[in-house]
Design a protein around this nucleic acid. Structure first.
Length: 467
RNA sequence: GCCGGCGUAGCUCAGCUUGGUUAGAGCAGCGGUCUUUUAAACCGAUGGUCCAGGGUUCGAAUCCCUGCGCCGGCACCA
């Protein structure tokens, strides 16, 4: 930062920089290390029980509020688990240390040692016997009462959001627990957790426009993956019978409260299973996720009640379209009618079954009517949460499907599925009969935390360049 | 990409409809008083590229145009 810019800083930040220099001049290391807390705010508070005072404990965290009261300073210390009040007493600390404590700023990270007791008002409090500045903060935190509301700052500077809005941390803790519970369920059932390429020559497995990048030393264009499917199915060819990946995929599309260009997809594939098995698995995954998030199955999203208790309703797409539009349709027309007239009206969890073969180039046709495939999507509150099918294992049919997609591509449909010769080669070796399932993790986390925007469940959502 | 709303102090917000001294408040920060507070209180002095650029006007935070960003809707999509 240049001298000139330094002078342009708001006064509150200039003051902190000057204080930093004063501390250094006084021999204080404002960025110290090697401090080891013995407790968290949570365990320290639990320690007190019915006792009047505990033995000294050592905590570390960020100072959030300071209340000066003559010879006392009250402050709140926030760590990963919560907050605890600190009290510094001039008569205990002595004039010099008391003044040093009072000189700390909101936002500073400090270590403190002292016994836990209860104040007259009943607040569990650490009485500061010694303390150490661990990290000096040079920027003022948002206001203590109104907090940080500006969504632009919340998303661009998530670190500030996480400091100022502890409930935001809970959303991301829940996100982590949901993913852990999903992994746990799949691990338990013998699925192995694998990683497949993000950089791909042919971005297949879904309908979406990809991001394009370039490898310099290979001098080759590569795409970021839009789905996980084709590599996971190659692994079934290789003999892994149950695989899954929780991975980031990238789709070069517009932003909205429900769309971030990079998002997290779970896909899993199970040999000797079909889409009926995938429906069961989907229900199980929703249940363990809700439990992990601490959410009852009878819940609500944005004020609308929704019951996630299995079994979910199952309806054929053609029947739903007939019911809502009075029309008998097949092919892309059926899918279009479903999306336009039916999907938004499905509020409670519904497995929509048997998609038209034209929009499902990777799914197995029904025995009794090859115009349809054994595929379902799970719709809740009008939104898609899962997409699964009995996988197509016939390499001759698969090639024909890719060729049909290639024709659409030639006709200008940029999202038609590309030809993937290596995938066909793998299927020619023999893909066991199998079911596959994809679940959009971000939307599931939104549902189970009642968060209105995908940006509220992605720590660092995509934003335009800061102006 | 299109349509609508919004952008004022570090943070939370007034002011804009109907242009008029030097742009306000609360919190934070700064200087004081205060030993059990918890949105601490009280006194004092501060703090601004009113998103940016252009225009209209004697005069623009305010009206007009363009651009940027954020939010929402549509389109695309999970």
């Amino acid at each position: 930062m240049t001298e000139e810019k330094e002078l342009d800083l708001p006064a509150v930040m200039r003051d902190r920089r000057e204080k930093l220099e004063r501390l250094r001049a006084a021999g204080v290391d404002p960025y110290s290390r090697g401090f080891k807390p013995t407790h968290t705010s949570e365990t320290a508070k639990a320690l007190l029980g019915d006792a009047e005072r505990t033995n000294p404990v050592t905590l570390a965290g960020r100072l959030m509020v300071k209340r000066l009261q003559g010879g006392l300073v009250f402050a709140d210390l926030q760590d990963a688990r919560g907050r605890i009040q600190l009290m510094a007493n001039r008569n205990v600390l002595g004039d010099e240390n008391f003044a040093r404590f009072a000189d700390l700023d909101v936002g500073d990270i400090v270590g403190v040692t002292g016994p836990i007791f209860k104040t007259r008002r009943g607040e569990i409090t650490l009485e500061v016997h010694s303390f150490q500045l661990l990290t000096k903060s040079l920027r003022p935190l948002p206001e203590k009462w109104h907090g940080l509301k500006d969504v632009e700052i919340r998303y661009r500077q998530r670190y500030v959001d996480l400091i100022a809005n502890p409930q935001v941390r809970e959303v991301f803790r829940a996100r982590s627990k949901i993913i852990t519970s999903i992994r746990g369920l799949l691990d338990e059932r013998g699925f192995i957790d694998v990683e497949t390429p993000v950089l791909q020559e042919i971005p297949g497995g879904g309908h979406a426009r990809p991001f394009l990048t370039h490898h310099n030393s290979l001098d080759r264009d590569l795409f970021l993956r839009i789905a996980l499917e084709l590599h996971l199915k190659r692994l079934l060819v290789g003999g892994f019978e149950r695989v899954y990946e929780v991975g980031r995929v990238f789709r070069n599309e517009g932003l909205s409260p429900r769309h971030n260009p990079e998002f997290t997809l779970l896909e899993c594939y199970q040999a000797y299973a079909d889409y009926e098995d995938m429906m069961q698995l989907t229900e199980d995954l929703i249940v363990v996720s809700a439990m992990a998030a601490g959410r009852p199955l009878e819940t609500a999203y944005e004020g609308e009640s929704v019951n996630l208790t299995p079994p979910f309703r199952r309806e054929r797409m053609a029947d739903l379209v007939l019911e809502h539009t009075g029309r008998h349709a097949v092919g892309e027309e059926l899918n279009d009618l479903f999306e336009e007239h039916v999907q938004a009206r499905l509020r409670q969890p519904t497995f929509v079954l048997d998609y038209p073969v034209e929009v499902s180039p990777l799914a197995r046709p029904r025995e009794d009517d090859p115009r349809f495939v054994e595929r379902f999507e799970l719709i809740i509150l009008g939104r898609e949460y899962a997409n699964a099918f009995t996988e197509l294992t016939d390499p001759i049919d698969q090639r024909a499907r890719f060729e049909a997609q290639a024709a659409k591509r030639a006709a200008g449909n940029v999202e038609a599925h590309p030809m993937d010769e290596d995938f066909l080669r793998a299927v020619e070796y023999g893909l066991p009969p199998c079911g596959g399932l994809g679940v959009g993790i971000d939307r599931l986390v939104m549902l189970l935390n009642d968060q209105p925007s995908v940006r509220d469940v992605i720590l660092f959502p995509v934003m335009k360049a800061e102006s």
